[in-house]
Design a protein around this nucleic acid. Structure first.
Length: 603
RNA sequence: GGUCCGGUAGCUCAGUUGGAUAGAGCAUCAGCCUUCUAAGCUGAGGGUCAUUGGUUCGAAUCCAAUCCGGAUCACCA
């Protein structure tokens, strides 16, 4: 049990003895004591004033007396300042924690809870390469999946690939018209970038053609419909739907190029999936559902024979679920896939990592699923994240301001190489080791940068800031870890330290002298790790972990500069500090893993 | 126009179910490498928490109104 919970429990047990009333956890608001006051944790008395009809200080005095008297192994001292009861936690309690609950704190892992969750993320289109926004999505999805696992859920990572439709045909048409048989191999271009170039080409040509038509007297609408390249594209979509062999072949060939490119990127950034859905397989799903919806009278048919659902009672609009020509719309496929997920995996919860531009769509999807009586429809959860903007404004593909994922990764790695070379600390590394280190730091910096912000919020990507490796960054945390490993290596090789195997003594006897301020601060912070994991899970928010780990690393660095481990005052102090260092390193490794960030042993 | 989200230091962000003098990082300035990795540490300056009103012992946090920014409201996906 965490110290905060223990404190609340003690208070719940104490107060009835004093005042003949019963209380719950919620009555006791516990905060960490502000540094300017004496004590470790603080209970706010104001919330009790009304029910007890006493002054805050009076209640605090009685509770403080009672706690220190009845729980001396937990609380040694108290003071009251303006209605705040500050309690000092016994050193022995912290020592016991280091001895007995060491592993619980290091990894914060909960028992399996028997619940199964699917996390769908990434969801790329096969007509262009991944960009900065996809990176936020990928890092978020992966991290949230790991956070759920750490909290005892069984997790299935899934991905829906949007591999068909008019936008895919656009790049296909452009390739047919302009490529002269060029391939990624012949041009030495990464497959997804290669295909993306033809998507851009399509838009250039399309724009030119519509402008010419408008110049010749057509309206904008007419021009957009009649542009030859668009007509060809629409024909190609029909041909695709009819399975025309040469179109299918081209489609498979070009998508194959894109997948080869994506594989490289996914591997570099460490994204993986347990199940990949392809829209070309799922786009016909949902047709049966329309039928069921008609029978259940959830849907209704309009005069032109299109099918709708009325969500005006829920404050939304009427939504079409089937066109008058009988074909399914986007949302119908989504309903079908949502149902298939439940049927195939029997999941308890279905999380969708999708940008907040689709908030409305996802709300509609969930409502329809509920109205259709789908099992667990109330456990569909849209993990809605904010857009990534640039300091100059939004990313716009038409204006060429999109930050490409591969370019960004390259830049981050190049920057980490440059910094590492300037510092010159790993001159004995061979080429392979260096390459691995540059990747670890560069990609770690990028992930941390994108995950340290609350997912819900729109965030600004500042290129200069993102390659900064000081302060609240991934490399700062990695550096702290590498520092600790350096100490532990030294300890392992030094017989004077009396820890031959590199591990500090697992049991530290009660200290003969008090814990120093920074030692205690480090233990207190470490003890909060399991609570951080839990909070991150409740909020599905990796930034909780990022903020926590940064705070821990900072606390360690202060401790490290202030107190020598090698030249500790006594042998027991040295053992304690070694143990605290190892504890910190283990938490950092565990927490950074939840963010998908790898740690170097040296840097 | 309807709905939803946001506005905290020059910049990027934290800020728990309302709690003590609103915190970090970057940037600026001043210090610290003979001792376990200076990608570090210590300190300083920097705030009308968009505005106004309300709720109460207490509001950045809750409520209302207003201002500003964004998203969305397709027989597109």
């Amino acid at each position: 049990m965490s110290i905060v919970k223990s404190l609340q429990q003690c208070a719940i047990e104490s107060l009835p003895a004093l005042f003949d009333q019963s209380f719950t956890e919620k009555d006791f608001q516990v905060n960490q004591t502000k540094p300017e006051f004496e004590g470790d944790y603080t209970v706010v008395m104001f919330s009790l004033v009304k029910s007890l009809k006493l002054s805050p200080d009076a209640i605090g005095n009685q509770l403080g007396e009672h706690l220190t008297k009845n729980y001396p192994h937990l609380f040694t001292k108290f003071n009251i300042i303006k209605g705040f009861l500050n309690l000092t936690v016994a050193d022995d309690y912290w020592m016991e924690l280091l001895n007995k609950n060491y592993n619980d704190i290091c990894y914060g892992k909960k028992e399996m809870n028997g619940k199964k969750v699917m996390v769908e993320y990434s969801s790329p289109n096969t007509n262009k390469p991944l960009h900065l926004g996809h990176l936020r999505n990928n890092f978020l999805g992966w991290s949230v999946a790991e956070i759920l696992k750490a909290n005892g859920y069984e997790v299935i990572k899934s991905c829906i690939v949007n591999d068909r439709g008019i936008h895919i045909c656009k790049s296909m048409i452009a390739w047919q018209l302009f490529a002269n048989g060029a391939t990624p191999e012949s041009t030495k271009t990464k497959g997804d970038h290669f295909v993306g170039e033809y998507y851009v080409k399509f838009n250039d040509v399309y724009k030119k053609e519509t402008e010419e038509l408008i110049a010749s007297g057509k309206t904008k609408d007419e021009a957009e419909k009649e542009a030859p390249v668009m007509k060809a594209t629409q024909q190609m979509l029909l041909d695709w739907e009819n399975g025309k062999p040469e179109v299918m072949e081209l489609w498979k060939k070009m998508n194959g190029w894109v997948y080869a490119g994506f594989d490289v990127t996914y591997k570099r950034i460490g994204s993986d999936f347990d199940k990949v859905y392809y829209e070309s397989n799922t786009y016909l799903l949902g047709k049966d559902i329309v039928q069921q919806g008609m029978e259940k009278k959830v849907f209704y048919r309009k005069d032109d024979s299109s099918i709708w659902i009325d969500l005006t009672a829920e404050g939304l609009d009427e939504k079409i679920v089937q066109r008058r020509d009988g074909t399914a719309v986007y949302i119908t496929q989504d309903i079908g896939l949502a149902l298939q997920k439940y049927e195939q995996y029997n999941i308890d919860k279905s999380i969708y990592v999708i940008g907040n531009e689709q908030n409305y769509h996802m709300k509609v999807l969930q409502l329809i699923c509920q109205k259709l009586g789908m099992p667990n429809a109330e456990n569909i959860f849209h993990l809605s994240y904010g857009m990534v903007e640039l300091t100059t404004g939004k990313m716009k593909s038409r204006e060429g301001t999109v930050v490409d994922a591969d370019d960004l990764v390259d830049e981050m790695i190049a920057t980490s190489k440059q910094h590492t070379e300037e510092l010159g600390k790993v001159k004995d590394f061979n080429e392979e080791e260096l390459k691995e280190l540059y990747d670890t730091i560069g990609i770690g910096a990028m992930k941390f940068y994108l995950l340290r912000v609350d997912p819900k919020k729109t965030m600004v990507f500042n290129p200069e800031e993102s390659i900064d490796f000081h302060g609240f960054t991934g490399p700062f945390v990695q550096y702290t870890y590498a520092r600790i490993q350096s100490i532990l290596r030294k300890a392992a090789g030094n017989e004077q330290w009396a820890v031959g195997n590199g591990q500090p003594a697992m049991t530290i006897d009660s200290m003969t002298n008090d814990l120093l301020k920074l030692e205690k601060e480090l233990i207190i912070t470490a003890e909060q790790y399991p609570a951080a994991i839990e909070q991150a899970c409740i909020e599905l928010n990796p930034s909780v972990i990022a903020n926590y780990i940064f705070h821990l690393a900072k606390t360690f660095n202060s401790f490290y500069t202030e107190h020598s481990i090698a030249n500790a005052e006594t042998e027991e102090k040295r053992q304690l500090r070694l143990k605290l260092s190892l504890l910190t390193a283990n938490i950092i490794k565990s927490g950074m893993h939840l963010l998908g960030i790898v740690l170097p042993e040296r840097m």
